[in-house]
Simulated assay, not measured.
Amino acid sequence: MNKVYITGTSIISALGNNKKDSVQKIQDIDDNNYYEYLKNNFEELKYYRIKKTFKSNKEKFYSILEEVVLKAIEDAKLSKEESEDLHIFLGSTSMSISIIEEEHLKYKKNESKYEIKNIGYGEIGIFVENLINSKYNSTIIQTACTSSVNAICYANDLIKNKKIKRALVIGFEFFNNSTFKGFESLMLLSQSGEYKPFDINSDGLILGEACSAVILESDKKEENDFEIISYNNSFDSYSVTSSNPDGEVTLLCMEEAIKKANLSIEELTCLKAHATGSENSNLSEVTAIDKLFKKYKKQTDVVVLKPYIGHTLGACGTNEIVLLCESIKSSFLPKTINFYEKYSDVDFTPLLENKKIDKATILFHFIGFGGSNTSIILSNKS
């Protein structure tokens, strides 16, 4: 079987319009200037925004998508022929709802004859296929907040089993009223406007928009390229919109990924938690991680990234993988910002200061509505 490496990445988010600026911003933000960072992001809504101006949602959507794709291909140093040989995988929750809302509003104002212009999201795939002149049709994966990480897992399997040579995985989430109002109706959004995942005083999550891409190949190109070591999926049937407070399904998912990798907890550099900030999700995942550490009597650093970019839903897989891997390539593990008080009877706290490192083996965990859990382990140690 082939090995699979991440050979190229790119990202645009609230942190910045490229990965270098984003990683620098992560180093610059701390508890002292965090509120100023939030203030710069929050306009009329508490929402982490991409700081670029466009004439329309459609222009924004496709301009950012194009920039992210081309930068990832450039980062992987792919030739024109290699780019055309990329199999495309798209992971998102809202897909192009922002464009659909915009078109519908035009119809209501008698500025368009289309009440609903497109059914389905095939045009997104076609856009990327044409952009890189791909030989293959795109694959769309929608599994809520595990969408883009599951796209990576699927592409990984195909490359490992020599079904395809290389893959382009894109995670994207852009502001739209349908998603925002949906989370608002479920009373999951933070009223205070402070993102405090894993803190007992957290009052909810804050959504964000971002777009990122990773290139997967079977050949390692750079010494510090991350290899996909293992992954595992599990499903929590407790509720469509919440996790079981006992955390057992999350625990099983992480545990199985570690076993498949033939690793022990102390061999992990860190565990990147999903950490949405909502009351149920916080409690369930904190309980699962605490059970994991207590069961094996070992701990590793716990990293939380959403206070930097918001909860980017289906795109958080690629977004958080790119940000953490790039931070590690810059020789540090990112601190958790705005954390002050842990849950009672829980023995761990997330990493509170940037930590200097050279190489890393990381367990990433993601949880989605509908009960989807995905753990994936990456390493650039070998």
Rank of each mutant, 00 (worst) to 15 (best):
T250M: 11
Q299C: 05
P245W: 11
L268T: 06
T276V: 07
K298S: 15
N280Q: 08
I228A: 00
S278Y: 05
F226D: 01
L251T: 07
S212G: 15
D219F: 04
N282C: 12
I289N: 03
N244R: 14
S234G: 09
A261Q: 13
T287S: 02
S264I: 14
E217R: 12
L283D: 01
K295V: 06
N232F: 07
F293Y: 12
F226G: 00
K259R: 13
D290E: 09
L263G: 10
E266W: 08
I215C: 01
S230A: 14
V302F: 01
T241E: 04
A210G: 04
E256R: 09
T287W: 01
T269K: 07
S264E: 15
S234T: 07
A257D: 11
S230Q: 08
S281L: 08
C253I: 04
L271N: 02
V302C: 04
T241D: 03
N282G: 12
D290H: 11
I229V: 15
D246A: 04
T241S: 13
D225C: 03
E285K: 13
T276M: 06
D236A: 04
D290Q: 09
P245A: 13
V240H: 15
C253D: 07
E266C: 08
I229E: 00
K221F: 05
N282P: 11
K298E: 15
N282R: 14
N282V: 10
F226A: 02
V249T: 14
D219A: 06
A288G: 09
I265L: 11
K259T: 09
L216E: 01
D301R: 02
K298N: 13
K297N: 13
L292H: 03
V214Y: 03
L263E: 13
L268M: 09
E227I: 02
D225F: 03
G247M: 06
D236W: 02
I258W: 05
P245C: 11
F226N: 02
N282M: 12
D236E: 05
N244A: 15
E248V: 10
I289F: 12
N280M: 02
S218K: 14
L268K: 04
E217M: 09
K220T: 05
E223I: 14
A210P: 01
L252G: 01
T241P: 02
N262R: 14
S237A: 10
I265C: 05
T269E: 07
V286R: 06
K294I: 07
S284N: 05
L283K: 15
A273T: 15
H274R: 13
N224M: 10
A210Q: 01
S278T: 15
E222G: 00
S242Q: 12
V302Q: 00
T300S: 10
E217I: 01
F235C: 14
D219Y: 03
I258H: 05
L268P: 03
N244T: 12
V303G: 00
E267G: 05
K260D: 04
E285G: 09
K221T: 05
S281V: 07
K221W: 06
